[in-house]
Structures are given as C-alpha cells and as structure tokens.
C-alpha cells in the first residue's frame, strides 16, 4: 500500500526512519535538479541537497500540515539555493581578488578571434559557458526565478508559491532577468559574428 505524504510525515515524526527515507526519495530528484540547474555544479548541488534535507529532518517534528509537504520542501530548497548563492558569491569574490586567472578575463570575442576556426571552437558550448557566466551575475532571486522557469519549466504560480511572493513579483524578476540575459546574448552573438 502506498502511503500519502502526510501519513509518512506522521510516521517520521514518531521516529520511523524508513518513512522519512521514503519521503525524501519521492522528491529528492527534483530538489537535486533545481540545485544543479541553479548552481551548474555537481558539488554545489550535493551541498544544497544535504542542507535542504537536514533542515527538513530537523523541522519535520514541528510540521503542522498547514501546507503541502512538497510546497514546504521546495520553499526550503529555494531559500537554501539563494542563501548558498549569496554565501558562495562572497567567497568567490574573495578568491578572485586573491588570484585572478587569465582565462576568466577572456571574452568570447577573444576566443573567437584566436587562430582556430569557428567550427573548431564548438560555438554552442562556448555560448552556454558565457550564458552561465552571465547567469552567475544575476541577483540570487532573479537567477532562481530564471532557473525555475527556463530550465525546470515550473509555472509562474508554482514559483510564486515556492518563493513566497506574488505572481507579479515573480514576473518582474523574470522579465528583468530575461532582459539582462538577452542583452548579454546579443553582445555575445555580435562578437561571434
């Protein structure tokens, strides 16, 4: 018999580890994918995954069934992702100040004007690389909305619920992020031509 989320939660609240495990396995792929899309890194995604589910484990005994478990879980996921991004950004910027590498300062135009031909450069992957770099520069909330919409294909209504904000706010983040990304993309494409 398949237990509902709420039944699994009640069991887990009473100390049943297998119920907690089953609850995790129902949703953890989504959590990992969101984290992976958001950070574009396996290691970061694993870190976010651990933090999200440890928070769930600690908070589960106080879960009061006022919302769906999935809503609560994805809310934690977006929060952890945003916090992680902010933390990481501070850390990375310190690292960059210490040792700036030449590769990071190279533009796509530099790459494209090397002696190699355009075909050899696998343009698609280069563009992806620069798009991801541009994504990194978005504020965490904008990046979160962009990731959830473009890569994970959630509806605006669902994103608003996850991020505990209005649909209007989500649209605003989305339009701003899209506009910035398009501007960046235009520059990249112009350089490429």
């Amino acid at each position: 018999m398949i237990l509902t989320d709420n039944q699994l939660i009640i069991n887990a609240q009473q100390g049943d580890m297998s119920s907690f495990e089953e609850l995790v396995y129902r949703y953890d792929r989504h959590v990992l994918n969101i984290a992976r899309s958001f950070r574009n890194s396996d290691e970061d995604a694993k870190d976010i995954y651990q933090e999200v589910f440890m928070r769930v484990f600690r908070g589960l005994k106080n879960f009061q069934f006022k919302s769906e478990f999935s809503t609560w879980l994805f809310r934690i996921t977006t929060n952890v992702c945003i916090t992680y991004q902010t933390r990481k950004k501070t850390h990375d910027s310190l690292d960059r100040e210490i040792s700036a590498s030449e590769d990071e300062t190279r533009t796509l135009a530099d790459t494209l004007t090397d002696n190699k031909s355009t075909d050899e450069l696998t343009l698609g992957s280069e563009i992806s690389k620069y798009i991801n770099k541009a994504l990194e520069e978005l504020p965490p909330q904008q990046k979160m909305v962009f990731t959830l919409k473009y890569f994970e294909e959630y509806k605006i209504r669902e994103i608003a619920e996850m991020m505990q904000c209005s649909e209007g706010a989500v649209k605003k983040y989305l339009f701003t992020a899209t506009h910035k990304m398009r501007t960046r993309l235009k520059n990249i494409m112009r350089d490429a031509r």
Partner: peptide, 15 residues
C-alpha cells in the same frame, strides 16, 4: 538559445 544552455541534469550517480 537560453533554453539550450540548460545545465546538465544531475546524474543518477550523484543522486
């Protein structure tokens, strides 16, 4: 182009 830039899905091994 933006959609094509979607990062890879987490592998089964990572999960």
């Amino acid at each position: 182009i933006l959609k094509e830039s979607k990062p890879q899905v987490a592998s089964e091994r990572i999960l």
